[in-house]
Computed example of a mutant assay.
Amino acid sequence: MRVLAAMSGGVDSAVAAARAVEAGHDVTGVHLALSKNPQSFRSGARGCCSREDAHDARRAADVLGIDFYVWDLSDRFAADVVDDFVAEYAAGHTPNPCLRCNEKIKFSAVLDRAVALGFDAVCTGHYARLVRPDPDEPGRVELHRAVDAAKDQSYVLGVLRPDQLARAMFPLGDTVKTDVRAEAARRGLAVAEKPDSHDICFIPDGDTQGFLDARLGTRPGTIVDADGTVLGSHDGSHHYTVGQRRGLRLGVPADDGRPRYVLDISPVTNTVTVGPRESLHRQEIHADRPVWTTGARSGAWRGAVQVRAHGEPVPATVEIEDGRLRAVTDEPLTGVAPGQAVVCYDGTAVVASATIVPTR
């Protein structure tokens, strides 16, 4: 097959590309330029998409003996990921930009262009497994959790449709991270010990609040309890997420002395509501825009749901009501924030994902 290997400049994508070459595919490497003004170097494990990353990807491609290109997708990334991130915070939501990048960039913009250029699949270094359960249906693909639970990325891939999964390759799904680094060293890839990227790639300094302030400005408002009693003030409701405990700077301590958490964010009134941890507990989740990875299901079914990239799955009953996904969990979840994705599993297989909406 003709395979386009997305190479970020990190160890995972380099080894994934190497495995695609070793499997006998005709592989071409591509680095995605996602920033109009990339930094020259990364700050340790923060960010990605720097000039250093592009050079590292090119050097890995040279070692593998494959053609290599840089695709400028900065405009698309800014519109579909960065602007969406800012708009979601302005609406009082908590977005996941990595999930949005997979949906809009890597498996939409990149895959669409790859197919138009005659490639059969896009290969990435994501930790997830693709399973073809029926040999008589080679086009049917299931997305499963990776063997390395600590690195599993099936959650952020839960937005992919069956047709996209059919043209995806995740060669690292059956491997633990330590073995990937050892393999990179054996193959002579200089990125073998390169730190993993953390935090949000387009905020390399890690200052999310400063990033949002530069785009949304500051707007003083109040922090209140569930009864509306003013407890403090803030410079913008976009500084907060549901479930947040630190940085509230409340002037009035709780009567019982226990810490308080963000329960609700209202951008319209610019009010942040706080309260005790137990007020965060939710057993019923409603979510819009469901995406089915293996085809839609009807009626109620038993599975598990996960609401954070590295959260624990919780057993639940899931169904679709009037086009909206509804999940009732067996035990309460804490800090379920609008804008997050809820990803539904059947065992290790991803079934669907949807975007959580405000509920009471």
Rank of each mutant, 00 (worst) to 15 (best):
A5M: 08
G10L: 09
V15W: 01
A16R: 02
A17S: 07
A20L: 05
E22S: 14
A23P: 02
G24F: 05
V30R: 05
H31Q: 14
H31K: 06
H31V: 14
S35D: 12
P38A: 10
Q39A: 13
R42Q: 04
S43P: 06
G44W: 08
R46H: 15
C49E: 08
C49F: 13
R51K: 15
D56L: 15
D56R: 13
A57W: 03
R59G: 07
G65F: 04
G65H: 06
D67I: 11
V70D: 03
D72V: 10
R76Q: 15
A78I: 05
A79L: 14
D83C: 04
V86Q: 02
A87W: 11
A87Y: 11
Y89L: 00
H93W: 07
C98W: 04
R100A: 12
C101V: 10
F107G: 01
A109L: 09
V110H: 00
L111V: 12
R113W: 07
V115S: 00
A116Q: 09
V122M: 06
C123W: 03
H126I: 10
A128L: 06
P135M: 10
E142D: 10
L143I: 15
H144G: 07
V147L: 15
D148H: 14
D148A: 10
A149S: 14
A150G: 11
D152S: 08
Y155D: 06
Y155W: 15
L157Y: 05
G158T: 11
L160P: 00
D163T: 07
F170G: 01
P171D: 08
T175N: 00
T178A: 13
D179F: 09
V180F: 05
R181K: 13
A184L: 00
K194Q: 02
P195Y: 09
P204Y: 02
D207N: 14
Q209K: 15
D213F: 13
T218I: 09
R219G: 05
T222L: 11
I223V: 15
I223S: 02
I223Y: 00
A226C: 10
G228T: 14
T229C: 12
T229G: 05
L231K: 13
G232W: 04
G232F: 01
S237E: 06
H238W: 08
T241F: 13
T241M: 09
V242I: 15
Q244P: 05
R245V: 08
R245M: 12
L248E: 00
R249P: 04
R249F: 14
L250Q: 00
G251N: 10
V252F: 07
R260V: 11
D264L: 11
I265S: 00
S266W: 09
S266Q: 13
G275V: 10
R277G: 05
L280C: 07
R282H: 10
H286R: 15
A287L: 05
R289M: 06
R289L: 14
W292A: 02
W292Y: 05
G299S: 06
G303D: 02
A309G: 12
H310T: 14
P315Y: 09
E319F: 01
E319I: 01
E319G: 06
I320P: 01
D322P: 01
G323R: 07
L333P: 00
V336Q: 04
G339T: 07
A341I: 14
V343K: 04
Y345T: 07
D346M: 08
D346G: 12
T348M: 09
T348Y: 09
A354C: 03
A354W: 00
I356M: 04
I356Y: 00
I356R: 00
V357C: 09
P358F: 09
P358N: 08
R360K: 10
